[in-house]
Simulated assay, not measured.
Amino acid sequence: MKKDSRQLRVGVLGCGPIAQFAHFESAVKASNCRLYAICDAAEDLARRMGATYEPDKIYLDYDQMLADPELEAVIIATSDAFHVPASIKALEAGKHVLCEKPIGLSVEEVETLQAVVERTGKVLQIGHMKRFDHGIEAAKRFIDRDMGERLALKAWYCDSTHRYTMTDAVQPLPILSKAALKPKENPKADLKRYYMLAHGCHLVDLARYLCGEITWVRARLLERFGAYSWFVETEFADGSLGHLDLTVAVRMDWHEGFQLYGQNGSVTAKTFNPWYFRSSEVEIFDERTATYHRPLGADGHFYRRQLEGFARVILDGAPMQGADIADGLASVKAMAAIARSAESGDKIFVADIRGAV
Score class of each variant (00 low, 15 high):
202 H>K: 06
249 A>R: 00
213 E>A: 11
234 T>W: 01
258 F>Q: 02
198 A>N: 15
153 L>V: 14
249 A>H: 00
196 M>Y: 02
163 R>S: 05
244 L>F: 02
171 Q>N: 12
239 G>Y: 06
191 L>V: 10
216 W>H: 13
164 Y>E: 12
180 A>H: 04
244 L>G: 03
245 D>P: 00
160 S>R: 01
241 L>D: 13
200 G>S: 04
258 F>Y: 14
198 A>W: 01
229 S>P: 01
159 D>M: 13
216 W>D: 12
163 R>V: 04
215 T>D: 09
254 W>P: 00
220 R>C: 06
160 S>A: 14
197 L>G: 02
188 K>L: 14
163 R>P: 00
195 Y>E: 07
161 T>K: 11
230 W>F: 11
158 C>R: 14
166 M>T: 06
225 F>P: 09
227 A>M: 13
158 C>S: 05
188 K>A: 09
251 R>S: 13
231 F>A: 14
199 H>S: 08
237 A>E: 12
248 V>E: 04
190 D>Q: 04
153 L>A: 05
248 V>T: 11
153 L>T: 07
213 E>Q: 07
220 R>A: 12
178 K>H: 10
189 A>E: 06
223 E>V: 09
238 D>Y: 07
246 L>W: 04
170 V>P: 03
201 C>V: 12
205 D>F: 10
243 H>P: 00
204 V>A: 13
240 S>L: 06
172 P>E: 11
258 F>D: 01
167 T>N: 15
223 E>F: 03
216 W>K: 10
159 D>S: 12
237 A>R: 08
202 H>G: 03
204 V>G: 02
258 F>A: 02
254 W>G: 00
174 P>I: 14
214 I>D: 01
171 Q>P: 01
184 K>I: 13
210 L>S: 03
208 R>A: 04
186 N>Q: 07
189 A>F: 02
232 V>P: 01
171 Q>L: 15
158 C>F: 00
159 D>G: 07
257 G>L: 03
251 R>E: 12
195 Y>D: 07
169 A>G: 08
203 L>V: 13
159 D>F: 02
216 W>M: 14
259 Q>V: 10
257 G>C: 06
159 D>R: 05
158 C>Q: 13
239 G>D: 03
233 E>M: 06
172 P>W: 04
219 A>D: 03
223 E>K: 08
184 K>W: 06
178 K>F: 05
215 T>R: 07
254 W>T: 05
224 R>T: 15
172 P>C: 08
250 V>E: 04
164 Y>F: 13
219 A>N: 04
207 A>S: 15
177 S>H: 07
237 A>Q: 09
238 D>M: 10
177 S>F: 09
235 E>L: 08
208 R>T: 06
210 L>G: 01
179 A>Y: 06
213 E>N: 04
189 A>N: 05
216 W>C: 08
